[in-house]
């Protein structure tokens, strides 16, 4: 059981290392999904791209040095 729990923890860890980064990315995707449902075209794509780049930069800059 302990081994299975360890494997499950490591599997989640494949995608989530820093909780804030994961939450921010999910928020960007949710906003993009809302935009996509309201305005067809490339606007949602711009939201995903610009949002992901901003989240990455902001997250790295927020790391204590």
């Amino acid at each position: 059981m302990k081994i299975l729990a360890g494997i499950a923890r490591e599997l989640i860890g494949l995608f989530v290392d820093d909780g804030m980064l994961a939450v921010a990315l999910i928020a960007v995707i949710v906003i993009a999904a809302i935009v996509a449902s309201l305005t067809p075209g490339t606007t949602a794509g711009v939201v995903i791209l610009a949002g992901s780049l901003f989240v990455l930069f902001a997250n790295v800059m927020a790391v204590p040095r």
Partner: peptide, 29 residues
């Protein structure tokens, strides 16, 4: 970014070539 956009129905300019542009932007940032 490309697949998430495709999944949401985004028609990327340049289609598959957009991936190269995205990679360039991620590299720069």
């Amino acid at each position: 970014v490309f697949w998430t956009g495709e999944g949401l129905g985004v028609a990327w300019p340049g289609a598959d070539l957009a991936i190269v542009g995205f990679a360039g932007l991620f590299l720069l940032v």
